[in-house]
């Protein structure tokens, strides 16, 4: 995902803002990392450049 995609993403559950953590990126985009919703205490993974915003329960986190 490109970094500016973050502006239009939200938590799939509470629709709040997400906090981006990057573990791997190249010149164009973020390849690995996570998107965390503090309100829900859930982190959503970014794998191979694709954010996965399917809801999960805090227990799975």
């Amino acid at each position: 995902m490109r970094r500016d995609l973050l502006d239009i993403l939200c938590c799939p559950v509470c629709k709040g803002a997400l906090i981006l953590t990057v573990t791997e990126e190249n010149a164009d985009e973020i390849l690995e990392g996570s998107l965390r919703c503090e309100a829900c205490s859930v982190s959503y993974p970014i794998c191979e450049g694709i954010p996965n915003l399917l809801p999960k329960s805090p227990a799975e986190d």
């Binding site: 995609l5 993403l9 939200c10 799939p12 959503y44 694709i50 915003l53 399917l54």
Partner: peptide, 30 residues
Amino acid sequence: DINPYAVLAARSCGVETVRCDLAAGLAGPF
């Protein structure tokens, strides 16, 4: 797309892709 294979397919076409249910993970506006 909700389908993990579809998001990979779309990304391989050069599309910025998010895996989620309909538009659940997007704030917009569009």
